[in-house]
Amino acid sequence: MRLISFSDWNAFLTCLDGLLDEPQVQIMRSLPHHPGVNCYEHSVFVAYVAFRLARRWNLDYRSCARGGLLHDLYLYRWNDQSAHPGLQCFDHPEFALRNASELTDLSKLERNIILAHMWPLALHLPRSREAWTVSLADKLCATAEVMGVWKRLKMRAVLAA
């Protein structure tokens, strides 16, 4: 499976319904996430990987793309203890869901994707194959980012476009 193809990328962007241009989504560019990766880059990476997996597995790829993009829409610096009441890994899915719900209409499936993406650390269980797919994509992408594979894939250049 090639990482990026033009036709897949255009189909992926169509699924997002213009969400990439929303100011709330653009704010994620200023929020650090994993080493050398901002929240926007991570979220687009997760959304694209989830989209590709979902298409391969005949799942609702639109919901995987949208839920993947919005899964970390918490909009605060993760290490700012004044921004959230407890531990980031437990808190941020709730914040992301609240912000995503204010930004766009979410399906029940997309809501669970956002809430459950931190399972098994967070309390919400993935209730669909799509939610499991985004959770898996999140873990795969985070591992690639932390291990530096992200840089070798030149993903920043692709996502900056």
Rank of each mutant, 00 (worst) to 15 (best):
L16Q: 04
I27E: 14
A96M: 02
A137P: 04
F6V: 10
Q26K: 15
H71Q: 09
D80T: 00
F51I: 02
S30E: 15
N10P: 00
A160Q: 13
H34I: 00
D60E: 06
H124R: 15
I4N: 13
I114T: 05
I27P: 00
I4D: 11
D105H: 06
S82P: 03
T14W: 09
H124G: 00
L123K: 14
D17I: 01
R62N: 01
R98I: 08
D138Q: 12
K108G: 05
H84E: 01
Y76I: 00
N38A: 03
E41Y: 07
M155K: 11
V134P: 05
V25H: 04
R152A: 07
A47W: 07
L3W: 15
V149E: 12
S107H: 11
D8W: 08
D17G: 06
H124A: 13
H84R: 14
P120L: 02
L123C: 11
L125A: 02
G18C: 04
F51Q: 05
C141I: 12
H34V: 02
G68F: 09
N112L: 01
V25F: 08
N58Y: 04
M155D: 09
A11W: 02
W57T: 00
S7N: 12
A96K: 13
R62S: 11
L121F: 14
R156W: 10
E130A: 03
P93T: 01
P93M: 14
R111D: 09
E110R: 08
I114Y: 08
N79E: 11
R52F: 00
L19K: 00
R2T: 12
Y40F: 15
L121G: 02
L87Q: 14
S63A: 15
E22K: 15
P126L: 05
S101Q: 09
D80G: 00
D138A: 11
G36H: 08
A122H: 09
D17H: 13
A131Y: 10
A54Y: 10
V46N: 05
L97I: 10
L3P: 07
H117N: 13
S135H: 04
R98A: 08
S43K: 02
P35A: 01
S63Y: 12
N38S: 07
F90I: 10
R98K: 14
G68C: 01
L69W: 03
G86Q: 08
G68T: 05
E94W: 10
A50C: 08
N10G: 05
G86P: 10
E102W: 10
P93E: 12
E41A: 06
H92F: 15
M155W: 15
S82Y: 09
Q26I: 10
D105G: 00
R129G: 04
E130I: 02
Y61F: 12
R55S: 04
Q24W: 10
D138P: 03
L153R: 02
L103V: 02
R152I: 06
R77Y: 15
V134F: 09
A100K: 12
W78C: 06
H124T: 13
Y40S: 08
L109R: 10
V158A: 15
H42C: 10
V44E: 12
L13V: 04
A11F: 06
S82G: 05
Q24L: 15
L20M: 14
A122C: 13
S128D: 01
Y61E: 08
A65Y: 00
P120C: 05
R56Y: 07
I27S: 01
E145I: 01
S128N: 00
